[in-house]
Design a protein around this nucleic acid. Structure first.
Lengths: 108, 108
DNA sequence: ATTATGTGCAACTCTGAAGTTGCACATAAT
DNA sequence: ATTATGTGCAACTTCAGAGTTGCACATAAT
């Protein structure tokens, strides 16, 4: 149920350090299975599987079967979209603050 | 101990929905106290205080005394910096993936 | 056919963090 | 001086999710 829209959920997914390491490993390899990834992390395969499921839910990774194994790859679009969203929010804060400042100064 | 550097911690701070609403309220007002903010949220003042402390730790807000009250304001720089960082990571993923694709195709 | 390797599901533990309540202290207001 | 409003600290409860183990099932390999 790949949750489209809402950068909020992407943030929650990125909040976990293990998940971030996972994404880096995936990005470096282009494609990998949960078993391979678990070998390079201090957690079990099952933990990796759950993390991949979480990342899939928010659209940061996608998986497809290859024979008996399940290969995952990273989806950069989702991340860059979230970055753009975040930048807009920052800009919004900025304009709001400068507007308030203008009123406070020039005032009457 | 305003944790400078590391966009990772900013992500963790932004992961919480209450914290995001808090930031929006703050940005809209320019400045506000924990008591005022709590009045507009479904949580107690104490919860708000803890959230503000968390946001302060990662540099997303800053507080200063004004008489007997503690006023907080939002810091847009931290957010835009995190957005830039995130965009760079996305670009890194992209280049990594296209490099792998190039090797897989033309190869030699 | 049998062995090995990989995936998928379920039940369980455990820690961190979100939220609460209660109270003491500080600064205004009357 | 007394009352009201606001902050700060500490102890407590609750719950989601990160991680585990165990086992059943699927697909290769020999």
């Amino acid at each position: 149920m790949t949750d489209h829209g809402s950068a909020e959920h992407v943030l929650a997914a990125l909040a976990d350090p293990t998940r971030r390491r996972l994404l880096d490993l995936l990005a470096a390899r282009g494609e990998a299975t949960a078993t391979v990834l678990a070998a390079e992390l201090p957690v079990t395969r099952q933990a990796v599987v759950k993390h991949l499921a979480a990342l899939d839910r928010v659209g940061l990774v996608a998986g497809h079967r290859r024979g008996r194994e399940m290969r995952y790859r990273v989806l950069p679009e989702r991340l860059s979209a979230t970055a753009r969203w975040m930048d807009q929010v920052a800009a919004q804060w900025d304009s709001r603050l400068s507007a308030i400042k203008r009123i406070a100064e020039g005032g009457s």
